[in-house]
């Protein structure tokens, strides 16, 4: 069942820049209008219960897209339907059925305990008291936030605060949750914990997760599907696993030898690091088969240890950004 249907969505921002022929004091007042295409004619669909990573470099148009899909920004052209609702025409109606978390902006009151903000959210989402208490109880358990529920938000760590942010956005049991860089600034433990609970929420409640992140760890841990956007255009839309299969064109080899090797050389293989008893190599698999490389090395040298690795998802994605 399709929950998000986006068709030819475009957003153009108009901005003023200093005029090229501006001279002198009054020249500073001379401005020209410039159009910036933040999102350029993108189309995609998302099914119920999917976990989608919507990624791209800074300024690619990720957040602008999320903000259009949640009804915050009006598009220049194109259409979108979220659970059958047009986000910018029926913003309030849609808000009852989706949750949003913006990693860089808090929706909770900074000076009050999270508990107070949750109560406000329960009223905002028009929840019955019994329904609210039951739901909050479940979320407190899942997110393990009981101990700091009564502390003012400003006294919580970033990780604790982010947990509260997500709880606030899940109180009304949304069908889709939009997360815009939820792990930004979190330490590795906090990131791991947050990914675990999000994965559980998707599994237990079949909540669709629409995530933007610069952290490939989030994408690998949470999202089965990835859309890559760059310069406002979609350049990849497929399974996250296929991202590696499709774009891995190199393998890394880490070899330790029994004897000292001074000058390692091999056709179609790049030496990344030359050590006295070991080398790091990069094999371009479009030019040479990894098996033939391994066979040649084993035949020529006496090997102590050998490791074959794929480049990280981060490297793959950054290569895709650079190629585009």
């Amino acid at each position: 069942m399709e929950q998000i249907v986006v068709s030819k969505l475009t957003k153009v921002f108009e901005t003023k820049i200093k005029s090229k022929d501006a001279k002198g004091f009054f020249g500073n007042l001379k401005t020209e209008k410039r159009e910036i295409v933040a999102v350029d004619n993108i189309s995609f669909t998302v099914n119920k219960g999917e976990t989608l990573a919507f990624i791209g470099p800074n300024g690619a148009g990720k957040s602008t897209t999320i903000k259009m899909l949640t009804g915050i920004l009006y598009p220049t052209s194109g259409s979108a339907s979220i659970i059958g609702i047009n986000p910018w025409q029926e913003r309030q109606k849609l808000a009852f059925r989706i949750g949003t978390v913006f990693g860089q902006k808090s929706q909770l009151s900074f000076h009050l305990p999270a508990e107070d903000s949750f109560r406000l959210f329960a009223r905002i989402y028009e929840l019955e008291d019994t329904e609210y208490k039951k739901r909050l109880g479940e979320l407190i358990e899942i997110f393990n936030i009981e101990e700091y529920l009564k502390q003012p938000l400003r006294k919580l760590s970033l990780g604790q605060r982010m947990r509260c942010e997500i709880v606030a956005s899940l109180l009304h049991n949304p069908e889709i949750i939009f997360l815009d860089e939820p792990t930004i600034g979190l330490d590795v433990v906090a990131k791991r914990d947050l990914r675990d609970v999000l994965r559980n929420i998707n599994k237990e409640w079949n909540t669709t997760i629409f995530l933007t992140s610069h952290d490939t760890g989030d994408i690998e841990a949470l999202c089965k599907r990835t859309i890559i956007i760059n310069h406002g255009k979609m350049i990849y839309d497929d399974k996250t696993l296929n991202l590696k299969r499709k774009y891995i064109t190199v393998k890394r080899l880490y070899i330790r030898f029994e004897e000292k090797i001074d000058d390692f050389k091999m056709d179609d293989v790049t030496v990344l690091v030359q050590g006295r008893y070991g080398v790091s190599l990069e094999v371009n698999t479009t030019k040479r088969n990894i098996r033939s490389v391994l066979e040649e090395i084993i035949k020529k040298y006496s090997i102590v240890d050998i490791n074959v690795e794929d480049p990280s998802l981060e490297e793959i994605i950054s290569n895709i950004y650079e190629q585009d």
């Binding site: 903000k67 949640t70 009804g71 915050i72 913003r91 309030q92 109606k93 808000a95 009852f96 989706i98 949003t100 913006f102 902006k105 808090s106 929706q107 905002i124 989402y125 028009e126």
Partner: peptide
């Protein structure tokens, strides 16, 4: 500051 985005995605005026 753009903080308005945390208000515009809520079901109220």
């Amino acid at each position: 500051s753009g903080q308005i985005e945390t208000k515009l995605n809520k079901p109220y005026s």
